[in-house]
């Protein structure tokens, strides 16, 4: 019975199927918000209000011709989209989505899952770099190097910002952090600065405007994805969507309080909080213009990293003086 249950966890909820549906819904939400902010309609045709458009896009791409360049590293080129998707799906399993009781550790919730989650979220970046490199296209290689260059900028501030609330809660386990803030909601205000820093870093990790530098269309065509088409591109796009959900889930778990109220209420809370985070990300996307890669690294070390350290200092002071 336990095996069936685990299988259900992996494939149906909150595994593959749920993540597919929810991440395409989040993409639709993001596209719609972005479009309305730009005075456009956004998707309208497939389903009510175009809600099925990302799914239609996914299946359309799956049916398209799949081309592997002659000079590419073929095995790597073909394996990367699958590995990338697997990594983000694994990361999604660690989100405190339905398992909100702090107690005995299970395969998807244990002491230190926050760290594992952060590292699993770093992997897609490396996969994108490898994808660009394996394509052996001038534009892809430039895109790949830009991915890595940006990584050096935002990774440290992101880790610092996400780890400081955990320090305040005194636990490396997402469920326990959530439970800690559920009991003391006023302490969430302490972490506001870290939330802002983490939002910017997540935007950079997801490669969205103003950080869509690795695939800046008007500069380097498709960037890392220039040579990808058909099924592989569809998987990469799904990977980006799931990554967005996981990042939003991580931020909402760490910065936006607990998951009380049982399965149903907890689920509704999860959806509302992730949508709120995605709304903020869309807002940032609509209001800014693309930066240059040197400007990103400069900004990350001039502003984001010091602010993250400041957040750490605040947390230490609060922990030492108030609690």
């Amino acid at each position: 019975m336990a095996a069936v249950k685990t299988l259900l966890y992996l494939v149906v909820y909150p595994g593959l199927l749920f993540l597919f549906v929810y991440s395409t819904f989040c993409e639709w939400f993001d596209r719609k918000v972005y479009a309305r902010l730009q005075n456009r309609m956004g998707p309208t045709h497939t389903g009510r209000g175009g809600i099925l458009q990302p799914i239609a896009d996914f299946f359309k791409l799956m049916a398209k011709e799949d081309i592997v360049p002659d000079r590419a590293d073929k095995k790597l080129f073909k394996a990367l989209p699958v590995v990338g998707l697997a990594v983000v799906l694994t990361a999604a399993l660690l989100l405190p989505l339905w398992h909100y009781q702090p107690g005995a550790s299970t395969f998807n919730s244990f002491q230190g899952d926050l760290i594992i989650l952060l590292y699993l979220l770093s992997l897609p970046t490396l996969i994108l770099f490898l994808a660009g490199w394996a394509s052996t296209n001038a534009f892809s290689i430039i895109g790949g190097t830009r991915v890595l260059t940006m990584l050096f900028g935002y990774e440290v501030p992101l880790f610092l910002a996400v780890l400081s609330p955990a320090m305040l809660a005194g636990s490396w386990r997402l469920v326990e952090i959530a439970a800690f803030y559920q009991h003391r909601p006023y302490l969430l205000l302490v972490n506001l600065l870290g939330f802002a820093v983490a939002l910017v870093c997540v935007q950079a990790k997801l490669e969205r405007t103003p950080f869509d530098i690795p695939h800046a269309e008007t500069e380097i065509v498709g960037g890392t994805f220039t040579e990808y088409s058909g099924k592989k591109l569809a998987l990469f796009r799904l990977m980006t969507d799931v990554e967005m959900v996981v990042s939003a889930g991580l931020l909402s778990a760490v910065f936006l309080g607990g998951f009380g109220g049982g399965l149903i209420l907890g689920f509704i809370q999860f959806v509302l909080k992730t949508l709120f985070v995605i709304f903020l990300l869309s807002l940032m996307r609509a209001l800014t213009s693309r930066l240059r890669v040197d400007q990103v690294v400069a900004m990350a070390w001039k502003y984001l990293a010091p602010l993250a350290v400041l957040q750490l200092l605040i947390v230490i002071l609060v922990k030492g003086l108030v609690l």
Binding site: Q38, T209, S289
Partner: peptide
């Protein structure tokens, strides 16, 4: 110019 700089909102507004 907005579009080339990756500022698509500006592009949409001016063209409207």
């Amino acid at each position: 110019a907005g579009h080339e700089a990756g500022f698509d909102s500006f592009f949409m507004y001016t063209w409207r």
